[in-house]
């Protein structure tokens, strides 16, 4: 396990370096000089000279990268020359709602998918399983923004959660309940999207695990059904689920960005769209770097988890 951890860790560092290089190059691959890219419409020769000096843009590329990396590692993503604010502070405001959306939707979808999939898998091809399977298959093809639109009336009118409509975002600092209420629609929409995927993966895997010979062997020891499920079937079945969560992460982030746009939540997704239309390349760069890093680190954690759950993975 120790060796495995080290190997994965080295791999992680390499990936992060590669991502940082790609993000760094964003600015340099744009037409025109980097200072043009950064200053955009606010470009003046004096400003450019100052910026070149500040960011060391007159230095060789490798030195520029190292300087930039040093800044980024201390969470200094630079100055937004258009709004005259630091990019770090923009991110600080935009990150919490996005993270909240992602974490809550994952908890809800997993919390529902595991029991529902178990129930379906214990009686495969019976009514409940067939309905759940059919329903999830139908929902699989509906995009998040359509779900949000469809949820709007039921949640605001029928469930009578008035302040969960568009552009009603309340930050957590003003009360958890109102905050949750305001995010209800995107959370439910994102949860449905993930639930469908997790349900299908876990159900299929659990059904095949329950047919494994070692489950029959465990039964022949005379232990209870519950114990067989929890001790013998869940662990091998969760490997596929966890990998799916990892794979789903990237899609989930884009889904969240879209949901933020549709439901007007001032999260990273909204900032990203702003940055693109501005165009504010430094903000763009920071967002790409931060989201990519988070996705990679979460995947790394999930990898370690699968290695822990299935010893065949961590010791070849």
């Amino acid at each position: 396990m120790g060796k495995y951890l080290l190997r994965r860790l080295i791999f992680l560092v390499w990936i992060l370096i590669a991502v940082s290089i790609i993000c760094f190059m964003i600015i340099h691959l744009l037409p025109g000089s980097p200072s043009e890219a950064i200053l955009g419409t606010g470009w003046t020769p004096q400003g450019a000279a100052l910026l070149n000096k500040q960011l060391g843009l007159d230095q060789p590329l490798i030195m520029q990268y190292l300087t930039w990396l040093g800044h980024v590692l201390t969470l200094n993503f630079g100055q937004d020359y258009i709004t005259q604010t630091s990019i770090a502070s923009t991110l600080k405001v935009a990150l919490p709602p996005t993270i909240e959306l992602v974490v809550l939707s994952q908890l809800i979808s997993l919390g529902l998918a595991i029991p529902v999939a178990t129930f379906a898998a214990l009686r495969p091809n019976k009514l409940f399983d067939k309905l759940a399977n059919l329903g999830s298959f139908g929902l699989l093809s509906v995009p998040t923004y359509v779900i949000i639109t469809l949820l709007y009336i039921p949640i605001t009118q029928w469930l009578n959660v008035p302040n969960s409509g568009t552009a009603s975002y309340v930050p957590m600092s003003q009360g958890l309940l109102t905050n949750l209420e305001s995010l209800l629609i995107p959370i439910v929409a994102l949860s449905i999207g993930s639930f469908v995927v997790y349900f299908r993966v876990f159900r299929a895997d659990l059904i095949s695990t329950l047919q494994e010979e070692y489950i029959t062997m465990a039964r022949s020891k005379g232990i209870s059904r519950r114990r067989i499920l929890f001790r013998h079937a869940y662990r091998p079945s969760s490997v596929a689920l966890i990998s799916t969560i990892g794979v789903n992460m990237a899609g989930l982030v884009t889904g969240t960005f879209i949901a933020e746009q549709v439901a007007a939540v001032p999260g990273i997704g909204s900032s990203l769209v702003g940055a693109i239309f501005q165009p504010d390349y430094q903000l763009l760069q920071a967002i790409v770097l931060v989201t990519a890093t988070i996705v990679i680190v979460v995947n790394f954690g999930l990898d370690l988890l699968t290695g822990y759950i299935d010893p065949r993975i961590s010791r070849d």
Partner: peptide, 10 residues
Amino acid sequence: DPMTSLNPVQ
């Protein structure tokens, strides 16, 4: 078959 009858993750 002892290969498939033992739980691989226990």
